[in-house]
């Protein structure tokens, strides 16, 4: 409780959380209130921002502002989904490897290392190319599956340092099972750490979605911040001077990841005893 209070005194965490919550609410409330189809072609190609379309139109004559809000929603969903999956896999593997040690650790650690050395983007491209339909859930799943290894690594180190604690021995002497010990004696101690890792995973999920979508491998039948950039790239918005087609999604991506990183730094300063002032 004390730490939570301190967390809300950290200017970095508050700033990060504030920006994120604002973007999140905008992305989810606006489409629910204003019934506009982001795919509807309302004007001509690359109309400059005006009072009618505050962010102009894109290459298909669609309202960039409406697209942006819908794209933000898509990106956030994919990012959160990827974050949950990456964190779940990473934490499970890390906790087991760190607690069990020995052979179990060797095997799990080797798997983690293999995933770490293969560039995730390559796997990402291979998986997405081979998929016929790419729904939001599938995209999130794919992104999550490729980015868990470093969470696993970090959690493993933490879990390892905790397994020698005397309360773990007491739990063993109580006849508690491995799963019970991991969930009750180890995980609570690194919960703040896991949450920090989750925040970073969400950020990297959003970045990776943008990257993969720019290559034209984004989710099908929806607008995301990445697909917006992809269209802007394909239809030479830069050469046409249509900055409104690529600057808003780029800034939005930056803003979301920035707010998440800021939250993470704020949390780190509170949770990490070495950084406490």
């Amino acid at each position: 409780m004390e730490t939570l209070k301190l967390l809300f005194k950290s200017p970095k965490f508050i700033a990060g959380l504030g920006i994120f919550v604002f973007l999140f609410l905008t992305a989810f409330i606006y489409p629910a209130v204003v019934d506009k189809n982001p795919f509807e072609m309302v004007g001509l190609m690359y109309e400059a921002p005006s009072s009618r379309y505050i962010l102009g139109t894109d290459n298909f004559g669609r309202d960039v502002f409406v697209e942006l809000i819908h794209g933000m929603k898509t990106s956030l969903i994919i990012g959160l989904f990827a974050g949950v999956i990456a964190t779940a896999i990473g934490v499970t593997i890390g906790l087991f490897a760190g607690y069990k040690g020995g052979t179990v650790d060797n095997i799990l650690n080797s798997i983690t290392n293999i995933f770490l050395v293969i560039p995730p983007f390559v796997i990402l491209i291979l998986i997405t190319v081979s998929l016929r339909s790419r729904s939001l859930a599938v995209m999130g799943l794919v992104l999550g599956i490729t980015s868990w290894p470093w969470t696993a690594r970090a959690v493993r180190a933490q879990s390892m340092s905790l397994r020698g604690r005397e309360h773990v021995d007491i739990a063993r002497l109580n006849g508690a099972s491995v799963v019970e010990i991991i969930i009750r004696e180890i995980m609570p101690y690194i919960l703040s750490y896991i949450f920090m890792a989750f925040v970073l995973q969400v950020a990297s999920g959003i970045l990776n979605e943008a990257g993969i979508s720019m290559l034209g491998l984004g989710p099908s039948n929806v607008v995301s911040l990445g697909t917006m950039l992809s269209w802007a790239l394909l239809f030479e918005s830069v050469r046409s001077g249509a900055w409104w087609a690529f600057v808003p999604p780029a800034i939005t991506i930056a803003l979301i990841t920035f707010s998440l990183y800021f939250m993470n730094t704020g949390m780190d300063e509170i949770f990490n005893p070495r950084l406490r002032s």
Partner: peptide, 20 residues
């Protein structure tokens, strides 16, 4: 082993670390 632990138990050095 569980039956053994009913008969053999421990108290450790660090009363802080012994607690979750």
């Amino acid at each position: 082993k569980k039956a053994y632990w009913r008969k053999v138990q421990a108290i450790f050095q660090d009363p802080y670390a012994s607690f979750n």
